[in-house]
């Protein structure tokens, strides 16, 4: 197994390799970023704030397809991790690029959704619901883009035989992005009452 790269990625003072511990710390901080937004969204909704009935205007089909795409991308990145643990660089590389492809499909559907909503006048300033909608989904989309870029860089590294452990780390991050969407989907698309 290739163990090139900074010593911090292999050291394991806590029993958890430092690279993985760092990834979990990052995700713990992300809980506050998305959790804070979700908490405020729920509070405004419980308070009966005007505008939240606009949740009925979002497309459940588009949201459900995007959930399916992200769940499937989670499968492909975890298979990439399983493949690299067996030292199969090519299979892992392929699975990583399936995941990046799924990310592109997700962003394509999101762009289609945004375009439709904006053309109908539902912009970020229309009311509080749309402010939350664009902020939460936009921030999530930025995380998707960031994950795809990092995955692409890692895929070329592992082909050269470097930093295999990073497939697991980006996988954990990607699953978290999927996990956030699992909560955004019912909040923004399903709970329209």
């Amino acid at each position: 197994m290739s163990m090139h790269g900074p010593i911090a990625t292999h050291r394991s003072a806590t029993g958890v390799p430092t690279g993985r511990l760092g990834t979990w710390w990052l995700l713990a901080s992300e809980i506050f970023i998305f959790g804070g937004l979700i908490a405020c969204f729920i509070l405004f909704k419980l308070n009966g704030t005007p505008g939240f009935e606009d949740a009925s205007l979002t497309s459940v089909t588009a949201g459900a397809v995007n959930t399916f795409v992200l769940l499937t991308s989670s499968l492909s990145i975890v298979l990439a991790h399983a493949a690299i643990e067996k030292g199969d660089q090519n299979k892992s590389f392929t699975y990583i690029w399936y995941t990046i492809g799924a990310g592109l499909v997700f962003l394509g559907i999101k762009t289609y959704e945004y375009t439709g909503k904006i053309l109908h006048g539902h912009t970020i300033t229309e009311n509080l619901f749309w402010s939350f909608y664009y902020t939460m989904t936009g921030l999530h989309a930025l995380h998707v883009i960031g994950g795809m870029v990092i995955m692409a860089l890692i895929s070329f590294d592992i082909r050269k035989g470097y930093n295999y452990q990073r497939v697991e780390l980006i996988g954990i991050y990607w699953h978290f992005v999927d996990l956030i969407w699992i909560f955004l989907f019912p909040l923004l698309y399903i709970a329209n009452f």
């Binding site: 029993g15 958890v16 979990w24 506050f32 959790g35 996988g171 699953h175 999927d178």
Partner: peptide, 29 residues
């Protein structure tokens, strides 16, 4: 997803404590 894809069920307890702490602080928020 967390237990199986993120391998949380195989992970050291310190990671679960870290996440529980983050969720508790989110509850305070």
């Amino acid at each position: 997803v967390a237990a199986n894809f993120m391998h949380l069920k195989f992970e050291k307890q310190i990671i679960s404590f870290l996440l529980i702490l983050a969720l508790c602080l989110l509850g305070v928020f």
